[in-house]
C-alpha cells in the first residue's frame, strides 16, 4: 500500500498534459530553418544555381520580345525561379527520408510531437526555402533590369511558383525513400534538370512536336505552365490536369512510403 510520502508522487501522471498544437512550436521551426540554411549545398542550389542559370539563359537576343503581359526575360526569370524552388523543395523533402534512416524519427516518436505537426513543420521549411530561391532569382532579375512585367503579375507568378514547389517537396520525400542515404540529391539534381528541359522550363517547346507530346506528360510541364500563367495568360486544361495529377501522385507515393516505414518500426 502506498503511503502519502510515496516518492513516486513526484511523477504524478495526472500532473502532466500533452503540449498544445501537437508539439509544433517556434523553436522547432527556427532550428529546422537554421539547419537548411547552414547546409552549403542548399545555398548553392537555392541561390547561386537558379540566379546563374537566369543570367545565362536570360541574356539571349530575344530577351525583350513580348510574351503575354511581359517579355521573354520575365518568362525565363519565372521559369528559373520555379526550377530553383523545385530543386530546394525536393532537397528538403529528401531530408525527411534521410532523417528516418538515421533513427531521428524514432527519437521524435518518443516525444509528444504529432506526425501532422512534423509534416506541417517540414512543409513550412520547404516553402520558406523555396521562397528564398524565388526571391533570389527575382532580385537578380531586378538588378539585371531586363525582365519586364506589371508588378501584380510579378507577385502573382512568384506566389503560384511557391505553391507549385509542394509537388517537388513530396517528390523529394518519395525519392528519399526509394534511394536511401545522402546520395539522393545526386539523382534528384540531374533528374530535375532533365525534367525541366523536357517540361519546357529552360527552352520553350514547339506545340504539336513529338517532344511536346512527351513533355505534356512529365511533371515539370504542368507546374511550369501554371507558374507562368499570370504572365502568358495561357493555361491549357491538360497543363492543369498535369500539375494536379503529379501533385497527387507524389503525395500519395510519399504517404505510402512513410506509412510503410512507420509500420516497420
Amino acid at each position: 500500500m502506498s503511503t502519502p510520502t510515496h516518492p513516486a508522487d513526484a511523477y504524478d501522471p495526472a500532473g502532466r498534459t500533452p503540449p498544445r498544437w501537437g508539439g509544433f512550436n517556434r523553436t522547432l521551426l527556427g532550428l529546422e530553418l537554421r539547419r537548411m540554411l547552414r547546409n552549403r549545398r542548399t545555398i548553392v542550389f537555392t541561390i547561386l544555381l537558379p540566379a546563374g542559370l537566369f543570367l545565362s539563359f536570360g541574356s539571349t537576343g530575344q530577351a525583350s520580345d513580348r510574351v503575354g503581359s511581359g517579355n521573354v526575360a520575365a518568362y525565363i526569370m519565372v521559369s528559373m525561379g520555379l526550377y530553383g524552388a523545385a530543386l530546394t523543395a525536393a532537397a528538403s523533402g529528401a531530408m525527411v527520408a534521410m532523417e528516418r534512416s538515421l533513427g531521428w524519427s524514432r527519437q521524435l516518436r518518443l516525444t509528444p510531437l504529432h506526425p501532422a505537426a512534423y509534416v506541417v513543420t517540414k512543409t513550412l521549411v520547404a516553402l520558406a526555402i523555396g521562397a528564398i530561391a524565388i526571391v533570389a532569382v527575382n532580385v537578380t532579375g531586378l538588378l539585371q533590369g531586363r525582365p519586364d512585367m506589371p508588378a501584380g503579375t510579378w507577385v502573382a507568378c512568384a506566389a503560384v511558383t511557391l505553391v507549385s514547389t509542394l509537388t517537388f517537396a513530396a517528390l523529394g520525400v518519395f525519392a528519399g525513400y526509394l534511394v536511401p542515404g545522402e546520395n539522393v540529391m545526386q539523382i534528384l539534381g540531374p533528374g530535375l534538370a532533365l525534367l525541366s528541359f523536357l517540361g519546357g522550363v529552360f527552352i520553350p517547346l514547339d506545340v504539336g512536336s513529338t517532344i511536346w507530346h512527351i513533355a505534356v506528360l512529365t511533371p515539370m510541364y504542368g507546374v511550369a505552365e501554371v507558374a507562368r500563367a499570370p504572365l502568358t495568360h495561357e493555361l491549357p486544361w491538360y497543363a492543369v490536369v498535369n500539375a494536379v495529377g503529379w501533385l497527387l501522385a507524389f503525395v500519395a507515393g510519399a504517404a505510402w512510403q512513410m506509412s510503410r516505414d512507420t509500420a516497420r518500426v
Binding site: 500533452p18 503540449p19 522547432l28 532550428l31 537554421r34 521524435l108 509528444p112 510531437l113
Partner: peptide, 12 residues
C-alpha cells in the same frame, strides 16, 4: 541545439 529541439516538443 539537439537538446533545445527535442525539449521544445514537450511544451514546458
Amino acid at each position: 541545439e539537439t537538446v533545445r529541439y527535442v525539449g521544445s516538443l514537450f511544451g514546458h
